[in-house]
């Protein structure tokens, strides 16, 4: 009977992993290119989710509801980068100072949303569809759609990064910005593109998160950001494949722990994996993190 619960929880874990992976891919892409750990990412996720919630209340149908989140996320993300972060980056602030700026921006977004939402938790109705049996796992149509969306995002990112000139330029930028600029990579455009794509993914991740949790409040993004950052750091900054693999590990771990050890500790399990890697971390290789110090926003 335990193996049934185990398989079932692994199935849930894969769905959770898909939810984490979409956010983690956006986060890691932006971290790799700009070298900035953006702690307001979770709040952009919340913004996206709220945008979809509002559009859903207008009854315009499924497509506008789904599109609202990435759209608002992209706009918020690029606005943040071009206004606030650009101002502070111009003052020769380093990676840590800019991280503190993103934290402040996140705090402002969170509590402004909280004030606008009258501190409420909103219900988000999303039909989860029929159940589907795939081998030993049981999925709902909705969770299959989430997994499909994550796979699609991964495929699109990999194709864009590795098969197009644009992707080559982005990868060059993330390795050595000065050299890339000297080679004629249009920095400004590339970086804005990164903020737009990662913001859209953040918005989408926010929407996907509420389709799974069914409730949304102003503080939701931060809690979810924990798993997103853990996956992005675990997977190695700038690596979409690493982010997805790490999301799988974390997603399955959280759900297995939820099934066996009590749901209170499910998120803590995701963090415990990150803590373990930090403690046992090999000094080189995929967990060494980017070594360059300058931030390009």
């Amino acid at each position: 009977m335990n193996s049934t619960i185990l398989l079932q929880s692994i199935g849930f874990g894969i769905t959770t992993a898909a939810v984490i992976a979409i956010g983690a891919m956006g986060f890691t892409l932006q971290l790799g290119v700009t070298n900035l750990l953006n702690l307001s990412f979770g709040n952009i996720m919340t913004l996206g989710a709220f945008a979809s919630l509002i559009v859903e209340r207008w009854h315009l149908g499924l497509v506008p509801t789904i599109l609202a989140a990435p759209l608002v996320g992209a706009v918020a993300s690029v606005l943040l980068a071009r206004t606030l972060l650009a101002v502070f980056a111009r003052r020769q602030n380093g990676a840590f100072e800019l991280l503190m700026v993103t934290l402040a921006a996140g705090l402002i977004i969170e509590y402004t949303l909280d004030a606008l939402a009258h501190l409420q938790v909103f219900q988000f109705q999303f039909p989860s569809g029929a159940t589907v049996h795939l081998g030993p796992f049981v999925f709902t149509v909705l969770s299959l759609a989430l997994i499909g969306a994550a796979a699609l995002v991964l495929a699109a990112l990999l194709a864009a990064l590795h098969l197009t000139r644009l992707g080559k330029a982005l990868r060059a930028l993330s390795v050595d910005p000065k050299l890339a600029r000297a080679c004629g990579v249009p920095m400004r455009r590339m970086i804005n593109l990164t903020w737009i794509v990662s913001g859209a993914l953040a918005g989408l991740a926010g929407l996907v998160y509420v389709t799974n949790s069914l409730t949304i409040s102003a503080g939701a993004g931060l809690n979810f950001l924990v798993l997103v950052i853990a996956a992005a750091i675990l997977g190695g900054a700038g690596s979409p494949v690493g982010a997805v693999l790490a999301a799988l590990v974390i997603g399955v771990a959280t759900e297995v722990v939820a099934a066996f050890g009590g749901s209170y500790y499910s998120q803590a399990a995701g963090l415990a994996i990150l803590a373990l890697v930090l403690v046992l971390r090999p000094s080189t290789g995929m967990w060494s993190g980017p070594t360059r110090d300058e931030v390009t926003v």
């Binding site: 750990l37 503190m100 934290l103 809690n223 750091i233 990150l274 803590a275 930090l278 993190g289 980017p290």
Partner: peptide, 26 residues
């Protein structure tokens, strides 16, 4: 013991934040 590793300062800050949020949840 967990976080004071040879880690970039901004990564370290993020890890601390993760611990604060998770501990509150638990």
């Amino acid at each position: 013991l967990i976080t004071l590793r040879p880690l970039r300062r901004d990564y370290q800050a993020a890890v601390f934040l993760l611990f604060a949020v998770i501990a509150s949840d638990v």
